[in-house]
């Protein structure tokens, strides 16, 4: 890849936090309304988001383009790394390896997740109000439930450990003590964020999300 890899890598790092890190937190809160307030609460949360001004541009510049750059350049970053945890079994080296593995899993997961939800809305197969039902038909399928659990754990780990690395790469946590404390904090963040996403996922399995899951909704479940 020609050009200044310093700038590309910095942009990759920044986009992972702003806006993608902020988005994953927003996504967690929206989903959690399904657990806390049920089907109607989730519908209201989705409606709130779609009522935001300039929602198309928010999505384009806040999600689609950053996700595309971070994902594709991230695959290139992963390709550039040797995984040597066999020779060097140190904690941080494991995290280095897991960051790359979880990144690739997250890429596949998000690709499929977008196809099943956002793309179906775009194609007109599903309305925003039916997204809860769509999630119900996905999560009640055993294969997809496991797939989503793995995807959620990978994505939230990638986010949390990425935040740790971001603070190092931009020179905020410098000494070993600062980096150690930061790693405790972000592993705590990982547990909390992953837990909230998983609770939402189980909430979608509830019967209240079942109503009128049309045949069109089922078709994205290939397995």
């Amino acid at each position: 890849m020609k050009g200044n890899s310093y700038l590309s890598r910095k942009i990759h790092s920044l986009l992972g936090v702003i806006p993608l890190g902020l988005f994953i937190i927003e996504h967690m809160i929206t989903n959690y309304s399904a657990y806390e307030e049920g089907a109607q609460g989730f519908k209201d949360s989705v409606k709130f988001l779609n009522d935001l001004p300039l929602v198309f541009f928010l999505e384009l510049f806040g999600i689609w383009l950053p996700l595309l750059f971070h994902g594709v350049y991230g695959l290139y970053v992963a390709y550039q790394s040797n995984l040597n945890t066999g020779r060097f079994q140190y904690g941080r080296n494991w995290f280095f390896t897991l960051q790359r593995i979880s990144g690739v899993i997250t890429f596949i997961f998000i690709f499929w997740h977008l196809y099943q939800t956002r793309l179906q809305v775009m194609l007109g197969n599903v309305t925003h109000e039916e997204l809860g039902n769509q999630m119900h038909s996905i999560t009640t399928n055993g294969f997809y439930f496991v797939f989503y659990v793995i995807g959620i754990i990978a994505a939230t780990f990638h986010f949390s450990n990425g935040m740790w690395a971001f603070l190092v790469s931009w020179g905020i946590t410098i000494g070993p003590r600062a980096q150690r404390i930061s790693s405790y904090i972000f592993m705590g963040v990982f547990v909390i964020v992953a837990l909230l996403f998983l609770l939402s996922l189980t909430a979608f399995r509830g019967d209240e999300f079942k109503e009128a899951a049309s045949a069109a909704l089922q078709m994205t479940n290939l397995v």
Binding site: S5, Y6, N84, Y90, R92, N93, A165, S169
Partner: peptide
């Protein structure tokens, strides 16, 4: 090929 290549494996 500068400092950005560091991936924080800390080996």
């Amino acid at each position: 090929g500068g400092i950005e290549g560091c991936g924080n494996s800390q080996n």
